Computed example of a mutant assay.
Amino acid sequence: MKPWYEQSFGSDYMLVYKHRNWEEANKEVGKMIGWLQLPKKARVLDIGCGMGRHALAMARSGYAVTGTDLSPVLLEEAKFHDEEGQVNWVPGDMRELPFEAGSFDATVNLFTSFGYFSLEDDNIHVLRQIRKVLRPEGSFLIDFLNPVHVAQTLVPRSERIDEETGLHILEERSILNGWVQKEITVYDPRKREEQRQYLERVRLYQRDWFERNLALCSLGLEKLYGNYDGSAYEQEASPRMIMTGRAL
């Protein structure tokens, strides 16, 4: 059986997450540019770019952007939105990025596109790959969930109806053995027997895990933000752990 991340990021993923806002991506990119101190035309790699919202926003802000993702469905959607061909879209696995060493001035990894893999070394190897593709002193940004906040605020069950298709989307969330997971069921209530089910799982890595393994991978952590508004990270209150730093 394929691992969850090869099954879940397809056409139904775009339905489940269609509420994610392209305008918000523009605002978030504006913040990131300031945090990473990127000069115009900097070479930026968006790792796990998905449907391309942030990659396109960065390209429109004057950067030379490459977006890479394992999902061919999501990459096709990204290309559809990139009418002017502003981004270089490249299929790839974040554990073995298909780029030469030192190819980029900056990398970004957004919306918890990290911690997917069952083998601990696979997740650490993603950090090694980030270091590989960065030039010396190149910048990185990793946007991860705050595990303490997740444990405090997790909503076990929610259901909604997609107005355009009439499909029901049921999401059931839990924390088990160091993972946060979401079981997603998409179904037409008139055809309940044809329901489609997906699983999403992310390791609940704490701040000290990142501090330790970033250092081991020659990535220097410089700033830790708690959200895209630029607020300082607070373990109990912040919804995110947004880490920025440089290649050593």
Rank of each mutant, 00 (worst) to 15 (best):
F117C: 06
K182N: 07
V180R: 01
E193M: 09
V155C: 15
L145K: 13
I142Y: 03
L176H: 10
D121W: 09
V180M: 10
L221W: 02
D162N: 14
L141T: 08
Q195I: 01
Q197E: 14
L170E: 13
A215G: 04
G226I: 01
A215R: 08
E120R: 13
A215E: 15
V150Y: 03
E211C: 00
P156I: 11
L145V: 06
Y198C: 05
S158V: 07
S218F: 03
W179A: 03
I169P: 05
G138K: 01
I124K: 09
Y198G: 03
Q129L: 02
L224C: 13
T153Q: 11
D143V: 04
W209F: 09
D122Q: 00
L119I: 04
P147G: 07
N213T: 09
E183S: 08
I130R: 01
N213I: 01
Q197I: 01
N177Y: 10
R173C: 11
I142K: 02
F114S: 06
L224I: 10
G166I: 02
Q152L: 08
Y205S: 02
N227H: 00
N177G: 06
L216K: 13
R160L: 08
Q181E: 11
G220L: 05
R135E: 11
R207W: 01
Q152H: 10
I161K: 12
P136L: 08
R131V: 07
N146W: 08
R212M: 11
L127C: 13
V155K: 10
G220M: 12
V202M: 10
Y187R: 12
T165P: 03
R196H: 11
L167C: 12
F144C: 13
V180Y: 07
S139G: 14
E137P: 02
N146H: 03
Q181F: 11
S218M: 14
V150W: 14
R190P: 00
E159K: 12
S174I: 04
H125R: 05
D188L: 06
V155L: 15
P136V: 13
G138C: 06
L134C: 05
E164W: 06
V133T: 15
E163H: 14
L199A: 01
S118E: 13
S158Q: 15
R192I: 13
E164R: 10
E183T: 00
D162M: 06
R128H: 12
R173V: 00
R135I: 13
S218Q: 10
F210Y: 14
H168N: 05
K191L: 13
Q197T: 06
R157Y: 15
F140A: 13
F210M: 09
T185M: 00
D143A: 03
L219T: 04
A215M: 04
R131I: 01
L134W: 03
E172D: 10
R135Y: 05
R196G: 03
I184W: 08
A151Y: 10
N123S: 12
L154G: 00
K191H: 14
R203V: 00
G226Y: 00
Q195E: 12
A215I: 01
D208H: 03
